[in-house]
Amino acid sequence: MSELIEEFEVFASTTLDDISARLEVLVAIEQLPNGLVSDVLIILDELISNLFKYGGGKRLEVKLYKSADVLEVRCKDDGAPFNPLMTQRPDLEVPMEDRAIGGLGLELVLAMTDSQNYHYDGNCNHLTLTLSLS
């Protein structure tokens, strides 16, 4: 069974500090391991900058669910239909000078999560990511 441990809305005016403060509270009440705070912030920073810079969205809704061994990050936004998991992945094996600068955020999200699921429904993008708690 997974339990909802936090939910909040993110707007263009929301800063990463606001989100960080929420996560710190979860750490303080022992709902979130300290080691996952920066991973979650990296993920949300990526989604937020995509949404407000390119996606034309106004609002991102974030829900965090926790079960015995998994943290689930459920995101829902009202931006243009966009599946971040389908972004073209950069070739990380070539030296920097031969790489295109792009897709870095997706690489970080994929590295920090165990599963990723996207669907578009009800005029919203839905992205569910899971992070291992162990």
Partner: peptide
């Protein structure tokens, strides 16, 4: 203390620019 992909992008740009 923290870097996200926005920060990485600045590093990548600078590395490319200098390597050139």
């Amino acid at each position: 203390k923290f870097i996200s992909s926005s920060g990485l992008r600045v590093f990548f740009k600078t590395i490319k620019q200098l390597k050139k």
